[in-house]
Nucleic acid binder design. Structure first.
Length: 409
RNA sequence: GUGGCCGUAGCUCAGUUGGUUAGAGCGCCUGGUUGUGGUCCAGGAGGCCGGGGGUUCAAAUCCCCUCGGCCACCCCA
């Protein structure tokens, strides 16, 4: 029994859940398409370097969450923990001289070695978008508006709020970081263990701490938002103005920081309170330096990723399974005739279920369990169509059957 | 990685201070119906009580380890 369980943090997605997941990604895909985004897929694993360099050596993902292993030739391989690095890599290897901008979306599994919680697994699925080659804040606005649009289409907009922040450009972020660290150094003894850790790695994170003592320290700390240079301020203002114009509601959260090193300027998260501690449902930001950092041509980018499982948990009802029409030969020896008829109707666009064995009673029972809208009881040249909702039966000549069944599509 | 709670039929759960053949509802199967589903009635199958070790005359129940889940921290989708 124990070895028949899927590995920790993974899950079998059975049809009912799969329908929810599909609903999420299909909805996202349809709307992304309206914004001119096209699907692409990158490998599920990459050379470890691809993630190490892009996510930052000190990020949590790289230091403790990656699935890393050596392949048979001794190359270090990593199961992708996120999607942007792979898309950026693919851009560099194939698309660097394509006319910009480029708009992609992707969907698929991601892997992070983490402790389980609701809405958090070791293998999970993301739907993400990347917009490459747009340095203007309009790109940020459009990407965020598209995210909001998708959440609205999924019917979860009222359970979600958008938080935005700016991380500034590289220049002012560095200058600010030094100021902040200097300030925090003065309160070393008041900081929590976690925050001392963060001090070296990602001091901005300390603003997010839930520790009482940390909060007190941070209360009077210098804020990035007060240390932005003019260019960064203008950029942020333009993003906010654009969101206002597009009718996308947001709140500014100065504590919002991206965990990955490649982000700059805009950072945003759509969060919900309905999923416990895992409130983030769709999040992203601008990553202008990433592609160059990976050895590609300087190319600005902005993107986000949404957690499919989390969104599926939030959507109320799974879309119903398609309901077939079932073909039942009155004489079991007419099985082949039933098969031929089923094929013909399927070619005509109907969902058709074939009873495989058993008597009429048993087959009707199965048809009922399969959710059939109607049963076609085949008897020589004619057929009786039984409406499975009302129980009403109509005799139909085989020639007119396909027409008659149109009402059950 | 840290801390807390939990693990009994396919599913949701009950199981008294350790004490004989471990229960219910739903689901599943069969029959009532010599060829018509859903409702109803009757019957039936199905549990090494997550796994391993220990304490005891006796363990689903107590202890340890392990696997898995939930919750919080960390971090994130």
């Amino acid at each position: 029994m124990s070895n028949l369980q899927p590995p920790r943090g993974t899950a079998d997605i059975l049809p009912q859940d799969q329908r929810r997941h599909r609903h999420v990604t299909d909805t996202a895909q349809a709307i992304a398409g309206r914004y001119g985004f096209e699907e692409m897929s990158t490998p599920i694993f990459e050379a470890t370097e691809v993630f190490k360099r892009t996510l930052g050596e000190t990020s949590d993902i790289v230091t403790k969450e990656m699935y890393v292993f050596d392949d048979k030739k001794g190359r270090s391989i990593t199961l992708r923990p996120e999607g942007t690095a792979g898309v950026a890599r693919a851009f560099i290897t194939h698309l660097r001289s394509e006319p910009l901008p480029l708009k992609f979306f992707y969907r698929g599994p991601m892997f992070r070695y983490e402790r389980m919680q609701k809405g958090r697994q070791r293998q999970f699925h993301q739907f993400g978008v990347e917009l490459l080659g747009v340095p203007q804040p309009l790109g940020d606005v459009e990407a965020i508006a598209m995210g909001a649009h998708i959440l609205e289409a999924l019917g979860v907009a009222d359970k979600v709020t958008l938080q935005i922040n700016t991380l500034g450009d590289a220049e002012c972020r560095e200058a600010y970081r030094e100021k902040l660290v200097t300030y925090l150094e003065g309160f070393r003894s008041d900081l929590s263990e976690d925050s001392l850790e963060r001090l070296g790695r990602n001091p901005l994170r300390i603003f997010d701490s839930k520790d009482e003592s940390d909060r007190a320290v941070v209360k009077n700390a210098p804020r990035l938002i007060d240390h932005l240079n003019q260019a960064s301020t203008d950029f942020f203002d333009a993003v906010k103005g654009g969101l206002d114009a597009a009718g996308v509601a947001y709140e500014i959260n100065p504590g919002l920081v991206r965990g990955l090193d490649y982000y700059g300027h805009t950072a945003f998260e759509f969060v919900t309170k309905t999923l416990g501690a895992q409130g983030t449902v769709l999040a992203g930001g601008r990553y202008d330096g990433l592609i160059q950092l990976m050895g590609g041509p300087p190319t600005p980018g902005i993107g986000w990723a949404a957690g499919v499982e989390r969104l599926a948990l939030m959507t109320a009802e799974a879309p119903p399974a398609p309901r077939p029409v079932t073909i039942i030969p009155r004489d079991p020896a007419a099985q082949t005739q039933a098969l031929v008829l089923a094929q013909q109707l399927r070619r005509g666009g109907l969902a058709v279920d074939l009873g495989y064995s058993g008597n009429l009673k048993k087959r009707l029972d199965r048809a009922n369990k399969a959710g059939a809208t109607a049963a076609v009881i085949l008897d020589g040249d004619s057929a009786t169509v039984r409406d499975m909702e009302t129980g009403e039966q109509t005799d139909v000549a085989l020639a007119g059957l396909e027409d008659h069944l149109q009402r059950y599509r």
